[in-house]
Design a binder for these strands. Structure first.
Lengths: 159, 159
DNA sequence: GCAGGTATTGTAATGTTATAACATATCTAC
DNA sequence: GTAGATATGTTATAACATTACAATACCTGC
């Protein structure tokens, strides 16, 4: 089962792997993982919480990497368009992708307790959505599947 | 199959029914469908497009029903909390509910062509989401299932 | 019917998220 | 090394949402 974000894990390794894969894929596909873009991806990878564009921007400003909103939004657009990160609509915020490339119908679990966001790459929910839409004659281009609630850790503590 | 929003239908009747049901339910459950709230529901019912809070606010202002953002947001909160309307996260906008009360895991289809939003009351996607979350030990409190693409009409015209 | 509590509305101010528009710089291919 | 495409810098503003507090309307018990 591939739900990422809530399990205990070696996060340093998690970051290193994601970054290495991103670089490999960027090279392979001719995508330019520029300093700002790479740095934004690193910031998103720091933990599994969703970060707002302005959170990211503040970090970039502190590092002298860009002062205005478009800098952050452009980097985030690049990362989300190319599958390195995802936008969480419910939060107007962003998380690094924890599932491999090639995924298409990810689902997210947003914990109200610890604010972490778990991702599942391909889901029954996604398949169901496609089937439902097809039955209605609707051509899906993008889908949003998000659950908000309590992660196993936070649910356990009665939070 | 109950996908509402895209089919040709007698919209006057659609509005009248929804409004009557809302009033009946408000009475039955002791909810106060005040003039502003009722008017906002009417505005949302005018068509099946999603409307932003500020669209609604502009209409209210024109009618002398309220001048500041909280007026619109409060009415929309009331309507969404009580199931008379839904918030579309992808659009930061609102639609009137077209499925009956008691629904819990609706899915929305957002057409990029005509901007209409279709609703399906209970879906395989919703069931899949719940199952997936349960398997991950995640306790779902709220869920967001939205598809963006082209409705049957717009897909047909190659839009 | 009126005192007291609760729900609703009015209003000002502000906070947060996102984009348009245009200038400049950098990369890549030829 | 120049042209065209891609990426960045910067200003300004648009769009979405909330906090906080005052005023009013409404129920309820007496």
């Amino acid at each position: 089962m591939s739900a990422h974000g809530f399990e205990r894990h070696d996060h340093k390794r998690c970051v290193a792997t994601a970054l290495a894969e991103a670089e490999a894929r960027a090279t392979a596909e001719g995508l330019r993982l520029t300093p700002v873009r790479r740095r934004v991806l690193e910031l998103l990878l720091e933990d599994h919480r969703a970060q707002g564009a302005y959170d990211i921007l503040a970090r970039l400003q502190a590092e002298g990497l860009g002062a205005q909103p478009p800098v952050a939004y452009r980097a985030l657009d690049f990362l989300t368009k190319n599958g390195f990160a995802h936008r969480i609509e419910r939060l107007n915020a962003y998380v690094a992708c924890t599932e491999g490339a090639g995924e298409h119908a990810p689902m997210f679990m947003i914990c109200k307790g610890c604010e972490r966001v778990g991702e599942i790459g391909e889901t029954a929910a996604g398949a169901g959505l496609k089937a439902e839409a097809a039955a209605a004659g609707f051509a899906v281009e993008r889908q949003v599947i998000e659950a908000e609630g309590l992660c196993p850790d936070c649910a356990g503590t009665g939070a």
